[in-house]
Simulated assay, not measured.
Amino acid sequence: MRVAVLRERRAAETRVAATPETVKKIIAMGCTVSVEAGAGLSSGIPDAQYAEAGAEVAADAAAALAGAGLVLKVRAPLGAGEGEVDELALIPRGAVLIGTLQADKAMADAYAAAGIDACAMELAPRITRAQSMDVLSSQANLAGYRAVVEAAGAFDKAFPMLMTAAGTISAANVFVMGAGVAGLQAIATARRLGGRVSATDVRPAAKEEIKSLGASFVGYEDEESKAAQTAGGYAKQLSANFYAEQAKVVAAHIAKQDIVICTALVQGRKAPILVTEAMVASMKPGSVIVDIAADAGGNVAVTQPGQETLTANGVKVLGFTNWPGRIPAAASALYARNLLTFLTTFWDKEAKKPAMPADDDIVKGVTLTRGGAVVHPSLASA
């Protein structure tokens, strides 16, 4: 089987779907690998390293995809009119496409019409078997780390308490909103840098996780909050009354913070607004807000996705998108291993090709299209 790895062409995407490490392992599975020239440059991987790993370096997307039975991507392939190359039209009929596809009904229909078996890895179920192929977790972990590093760079003071002959600088007060994978990593990183860290999350299990990392818990708790978590570990949408009470507690706390890291996402929905304009206005000049949820609209009312903004009262709001892409070498390494694990889990060693049983929970979770039809429950009936 020929495996194609393309250069990512979507805006601000710096990652790559395979590394020399994973290319070697894919070749050992009995495949040939074609990597489009320049695919790894943004992640610090020159073409020569892919060649040394045994891959063919193809001149362009058409050459990389010629005869491919398996296509590895970070983001969804470009369609007609979306960019310089119609990648979708170049993917051979019958090929398996694996990536974080963020597909809607129209996109899924396009894959089905093209005869592509599309697997959206961001839909992998949160079960033990799928942990090592969980692209959301691996990328969110790095996003949480990078958010704190970016905050430290934008903050005009210091994270730790510094005692000098000229006087003492107090430790930064850091507040992390959302204690999922990204939030927990943000807490740990801010603590390592010497910040005085607090955090909040509506999920009941998060309180102990926050405390276990040495941060203090801030939040409103009632009977409703005890059931604020889905079976998959995501936060549930709660009532307007709960959010109003939570906002009162958070508003009083935010006014005292130097840095706020926002990471709250609700699966399949626009990110909830957790920090209002009034809360931003209450913060001290020089404070920094980092909005990791900017890709989903943002947790902060004043976030402008893709931009850093300075408010009238001197608060910096970092609304960058694609946070894992801001640490591309590490993000690519983990993402590529996630895809490799998925492949090896569903690999027929005799036939040397993927064997994905339709009744497997992981396969059902990620498969958008199969055999020219849309099969994912969330899209097939849309």
Rank of each mutant, 00 (worst) to 15 (best):
T311A: 06
V176L: 08
D359S: 11
E150W: 03
T200R: 01
M121Q: 07
D86F: 11
P46N: 06
D47I: 05
A247C: 05
I91C: 08
E350V: 12
Q246C: 09
Q257R: 13
I169V: 15
L334S: 09
M29C: 13
A63T: 14
N141L: 08
V96S: 03
G268N: 05
D201T: 08
Q185C: 00
F155P: 01
T276C: 11
A58M: 03
R7P: 02
A80Y: 05
A152V: 14
A336K: 09
V317F: 01
V148M: 10
A179H: 05
V197Q: 13
A147P: 04
L65H: 04
D201G: 02
A95T: 08
A17E: 01
E223A: 15
D291C: 14
R2K: 06
T303V: 00
R93Q: 14
T303N: 06
F346I: 09
A154R: 15
V375F: 00
A154H: 15
A188H: 12
K284R: 14
K270H: 10
A205E: 11
A294L: 06
V288W: 03
T345K: 12
G40L: 03
E224C: 06
R15I: 09
T19F: 11
P305C: 00
T345S: 13
L41I: 07
L101E: 09
Q139R: 12
T168G: 04
A331N: 03
A48L: 10
A231G: 05
S34Q: 04
K284S: 06
